[in-house]
């Protein structure tokens, strides 16, 4: 069943505007956007099955980069190949780019304004609290899992970055290497 050109083009537009509208209103990061994508592309348009969406979510989460962009890449390929991937990514990044560009222009003009800078100073306390709250919740998850090696990695990474100021990329690479070593060793134990 070969699709007509017009139908294909129509699907690309729907994909583009679908991602554009989702991305423009999604506060709160990757997981929220994945939920909205499921509603749009699985429940509404039936382009993807529920199981595929679950697999894509897992993959988007475990790959490097922003979850929203990763999910857009996967859905785009699935729905309309290379062209689909490109329009889905474009739809995802255009709204934040446009909004940030508008704010940046305002920022240059208003950052010197007394009231704006007072409000920003107050919000700095808020954003530090948000980030520490998130990391505390994530840290509690690691603790609850109770894997000693993971606790060790968390402590070592903290000392390396906070006190020793080791480059973040080295810490990521070392943790990845530790993960490979642990997995291979576990496999060795299992076969032995």
């Amino acid at each position: 069943m070969k699709e007509s050109r017009a139908a294909f083009r129509g699907r690309l537009w729907q994909l583009f505007f679908g991602m554009l509208s989702i991305s423009a209103v999604t506060f709160g990061g990757g997981f929220v956007i994945v939920t909205l994508m499921k509603r749009k592309f699985v429940d509404e348009k039936h382009w993807i099955t529920e199981q595929e969406m679950l697999d894509m979510t897992a993959l988007a989460q475990s790959s490097p980069g922003a979850i929203a962009v990763n999910a857009a890449i996967l859905v785009g390929w699935k729905v309309a190949g290379l062209a689909g991937m490109l329009v889905a990514v474009l739809g995802t990044i255009l709204p934040p780019m446009a909004i940030l560009a508008a704010i940046s222009l305002g920022y240059q003009a208003f950052a010197g304004n007394r009231y704006v800078s007072l409000a920003l100073r107050g919000m700095q306390s808020g954003v530090a609290a948000v980030i520490l709250d998130v990391s505390l919740s994530l840290g509690q998850h690691v603790m609850k899992d109770g894997q000693k090696t993971h606790l060790f990695i968390m402590a070592a990474a903290f000392i390396a970055t906070f006190f020793l100021r080791v480059n973040v990329i080295w810490i990521i690479l070392c943790a990845a290497a530790a993960g490979i070593a642990l997995t291979l060793r576990r496999k060795g134990d299992w076969t032995a």
Binding site: S62, A128, I131, L132, V134, S135, L136, L138, G139, V142, Q147, T149, H150, L151, I153, M154, A155, A157, F158, T161, F162, V168, I171, I172, C174, A175, A176, A178, G179, I180, L182, T183, R186
Partner: peptide, 18 residues
């Protein structure tokens, strides 16, 4: 396995940034 080991490191990095 790699992700399992990366997650605690990433948590530490975010905490340090905060």
């Amino acid at each position: 396995g790699v992700l399992g080991a990366l997650r605690p490191a990433v948590v530490a990095l975010i905490a340090s940034a905060g």
